[in-house]
Design a protein around this nucleic acid. Sequence first.
DNA 1: ATAGATCAAGTGAGTATTTACTCACGGCCG
DNA 2: CGGCCGTGAGTAAATACTCACTTGATCTAT
Lengths: 233, 233
Amino acid sequence: MSTLRMTSDLRRQLILGAAKRCFARHGYAGTTTKSVAAAAAISEALLFKHFPSKAALYAEILTEECETDPDFEVLLSQEPSTATLVMLMAGMVRHFLGIADGPNEEEEQRLRLMASSHLDDGEFARLLYAKIDDLIGAKFVDSLVTAVASGDAVRLVAAPRDLFWFAHHTVLMAALTRLPSVPCVPYGTAASLERQLSEFILRGIGLTDAAIACYLDHELSQPPVRPATAESA
Amino acid sequence: MSTLRMTSDLRRQLILGAAKRCFARHGYAGTTTKSVAAAAAISEALLFKHFPSKAALYAEILTEECETDPDFEVLLSQEPSTATLVMLMAGMVRHFLGIADGPNEEEEQRLRLMASSHLDDGEFARLLYAKIDDLIGAKFVDSLVTAVASGDAVRLVAAPRDLFWFAHHTVLMAALTRLPSVPCVPYGTAASLERQLSEFILRGIGLTDAAIACYLDHELSQPPVRPATAESA
DNA sequence: ATAGATCAAGTGAGTATTTACTCACGGCCG
DNA sequence: CGGCCGTGAGTAAATACTCACTTGATCTAT
């Protein structure tokens, strides 16, 4: 069997994609170079022509995954406000809950690699956390401060940035429980879970019941999480 | 080198302990039978005299870990009340935060095996979740219902049992971020984190600010989480 | 008591397979 | 022809697992 001839760069990307799938599902030790080659439909020898070692291939996947921005760019254009805060949190909840159901393979892989990293040295997780913090940490903090100032939220003892991570922990772990083919926790429908989780988190970070009632219903009523632009991947 | 002769049962337990350490740190695929034998200070041949295969050894560790009760027994004697609810949550937070710092090797292993299971078929995680639900799920639900009835908490759209899992997700993931030698998220001291997480969770499940202020301070002021008995491991 | 039989704990030295990685070679394009 | 893309057929090490064998404690039978 002879595979079609193609450019080196394209082949590299195909290998990276296949390897990412393998490493995400079975972890580093559980993945063999033979299985990666099979997933990429090439010979093992060609794999080693593109990457010097299994470890180097894995490292490149992690760094590439770090450099790929999570798709939160749109939210940055919003003004800091309670509405923005609710949108941020509801969007985050929807994003993580969508990982398990939808065919969002890319994000599922990121989630798996993220969880694996916590059991390992945590370096990949730290890089991703730093990236997420860069992307929406400041916007979250500003919005929460604004919400507190406007009376939509009470001031808690926790630093706003810590509250953001608490919220992130909640949805990340919820997504993990839904990763296996039969979910670890028997939640109801995705829609009701989305609402419940959003409410839990918004209350947790300090929003008043009035503000939640006002903004969350409005937020959940418009299915697409992109109210500003209409672009899509 | 000849190891001391000993009874079969004791040897089995020593092997299981060593294997648990190995599997927890490096996962199933990342653990070799040779490394387990070395950790147990015996020959590989003896390992296979006690367990028919690596998979059987792993399976026995998981079932044994399932049958071992998490140390929540004491809390069951409390009456359902807001105070009990706060104690449950604060105790859970303290328990999970203590995993990363303390020399609580047993619980760290359970946490690692739990996280691994989510990336695998999730069966072990489901069993443990069911066990936890049996142990404190009912008490949590009763206490939350009581708190709502007494005006200490507002009624949310989420089912109480779901709220319990949200809280669990939050602390479990927070514990995971603190598992690597250098934590994934730069939180402050353990004591302040404990308070912040408790507040986040208590607000999230619906407690009023007044109830939190009243009960949480009282709860955190008494370091040991065992107000009923004085037993210790 | 003591010599020998018995049996389980324990191991060193394997084996067959897998795994990460290499190399000499084939074919296709400019 | 020259320079890559691509592969089949390796290799040395590792891995899960086996087996013949030793050792030492216990139980007799005289």
